[in-house]
Write a protein that binds this DNA or RNA. Structure first.
Lengths: 123, 123
DNA sequence: TATCGTTATATATTTGAAAATATAACGAAT
DNA sequence: ATTCGTTATATTTTCAAATATATAACGATA
């Protein structure tokens, strides 16, 4: 077991190991907490523009996230429709839903990792 | 074992799980890759100002990182001296060296986690 | 006491990312 | 054909973070 550093840190502070996780290709991130929330909000609201509003993100950024994400998958995870009933909208494909599930499971494993490491700081 | 998402991602791309790790207190980060490199460079060069130059960081930011870091530990990890021989300089305390060791070990465990998760993407 | 390069600190400037704004294209429904 | 709210795209504006710049204090040594 690795040595503790408890004695180094101020004992009155709650110190934790934090982190961030994403999927990347060619060193470029294309899926993380932001895109996850975006997909969830698109699923909820039926459009990119409403999703963006719901999460206080500019439409442009939301569109770019979505577009970049679609470029990394063998078939689109978000299908946008410009025009049509109610002006259009965007829907998630089954792959999109599966990606959400995968990332949430990954995030859970990461959470466990972080909690273990944070606990270790207290020893 | 969790389900794979291999079929979702473009097969011609090298997709990996990436991440970032840090120490935080009260939700505020105070130690990560940046401060690690800073401590190492201070140890190498003997001063904050030289360390900052070596890693292409402004002196101000380097000083702030160092100062914030020192505020989270029971005793300083960097001891700065203004004035004196050669104008002064900064040295790491044993605690500072230990913090480096700890973070590198933590980073190694994280690397393993990321590699496992990345491998899982290929299955 | 004069010198040195550093720490310490405040202020000004830059710059890069994000949001804000504007506009055209879209297409089902009426 | 008109309407609707959306997608798609370009341009402008904003803002925060970082750098750049300037200056005083520091303290061992000579």
């Amino acid at each position: 077991m690795a040595k503790s550093i408890k004695h180094i840190l101020k004992k009155e502070l709650e110190i934790k190991v934090g982190g961030k996780l994403w999927l990347e290709s060619e060193g470029e991130r294309f899926f993380g907490p932001g895109p996850l929330e975006l997909l969830e909000k698109i699923e909820e609201t039926g459009s990119i523009s409403n999703a963006a509003k719901a999460m206080n993100m500019s439409y442009k950024k939301a569109w770019e996230l979505m577009n970049h994400l679609n470029s990394q998958t063998s078939s689109p995870v978000v299908v946008p429709q410009a025009g049509g009933e109610k002006g259009g909208g965007s829907t998630l494909t089954p792959d999109g839903l599966e990606l959400i599930k995968y990332y949430k499971a990954l995030r859970k494993r990461f959470k466990t990792f972080l909690e273990n490491e944070s606990d270790r700081l207290k020893i």
